[in-house]
C-alpha cells in the first residue's frame, strides 16, 4: 500500500500505547520501528528514507519538546507528530512553531493519526526531494567554468547579452556561447528555470 522503504518511528514509554501504535501503523502497511525512550531512538542509525516520528510529549527523562530542540540543533529535520495526554496549549503552540507536523491529544482518533503520519511523510519526502534537488544543482554548478558562472550570474539578473559582454569586457559571442553552455550544464530548459536555480544557489546574493 505504502512504499516499503518509508519508516515510521514511534517513541512512547508506555508499552501498551507503543505496541498499539506499532501494530496500527503496521496494519496500514508502514514499516515501523518503536522505541521506549528518546535516547534509544537517538542511538538508532536511521537509513536515508522518508520517515516521520510519533513522539509522546510527557516521558521521564528529556521531554519530547527538549528532544525536538535537540534534533533541530543537530540539523535533523525529521517531521514530528506529538502525542500528549493533556491539552497544554502553550506547549502545543511552542511545538508547532518549531515545526511539529501535528499535536494530537490522547486518546486520539485513528484517522487523525494516519492523516498526520501521511502529512509527515509527505513533508519529509518533499524535504528530501528538495535537498536532493539542491545537492544536484550544486554538483552541476561545480562543473561550470569560471567564465560560465560569471555569465550565468549576470544573465539571471535580467541583463541583455550585450550588457553582460560590456560588464565582463568580453565579446557578445563569448557571452552567447558561455550562456548556452551554462544552460546545458545546469539542465535549464528556459531562462526562468535558470533564474530559479540561481536563486536557489544564492547567486543573486553574490552580486
Amino acid at each position: 500500500m505504502q512504499e516499503p522503504e518509508a519508516t515510521i518511528y514511534v517513541v512512547d514509554d508506555d508499552p501498551l500505547v507503543r505496541d498499539g501504535l506499532d501494530s496500527l501503523l503496521r496494519s496500514v502497511g508502514y514499516e515501523v520501528r518503536a522505541f521506549a525512550s528518546v535516547d534509544a531512538f537517538a542511538r538508532h542509525t536511521r537509513p536515508q528514507a522518508p520517515s516521520c516520528l510519533v513522539l509522546d510529549v510527557r516521558m521521564p527523562g528529556p521531554s519530547g519538546l527538549d528532544f525536538q530542540a535537540r534534533l533541530t540543533a543537530a540539523g535533523d529535520t525529521i517531521p514530528i507528530i506529538f502525542l500528549t495526554g493533556h491539552g497544554d496549549v502553550p506547549m502545543s503552540v511552542r511545538a508547532m512553531k518549531v515545526g511539529a507536523v501535528e499535536f494530537l491529544l490522547k486518546p486520539f482518533r485513528e484517522q487523525d493519526l494516519l492523516d498526520a503520519v501521511a502529512a509527515g511523510l509527505a513533508r519529509d519526502r518533499a524535504a528530501r526531494a528538495d535537498a536532493a534537488f539542491g545537492a544536484g544543482l550544486q554538483e552541476r554548478f561545480a562543473t561550470l567554468s569560471q567564465r560560465e558562472r560569471d555569465v550565468m550570474a549576470l544573465v539571471v539578473t535580467g541583463l541583455l547579452n550585450k550588457q553582460v559582454a560590456a560588464e565582463l569586457g568580453v565579446s557578445e559571442i563569448t557571452v552567447k556561447v558561455n550562456r548556452a553552455q551554462a544552460m546545458r550544464k545546469m539542465k535549464a530548459a528556459t531562462l526562468p528555470d535558470l533564474i530559479r536555480m540561481a536563486d536557489r544557489l544564492g547567486l543573486a546574493a553574490n552580486r
Partner: peptide
C-alpha cells in the same frame, strides 16, 4: 487517557488486521 489511547490504537489495529 494513557490506557484509553492504547485501547483506541490497538482497537483500530485489530479491526485492520
Amino acid at each position: 487517557s494513557q490506557p484509553l489511547a492504547a485501547i483506541a490504537a490497538n482497537g483500530s489495529a485489530a479491526i485492520r488486521w
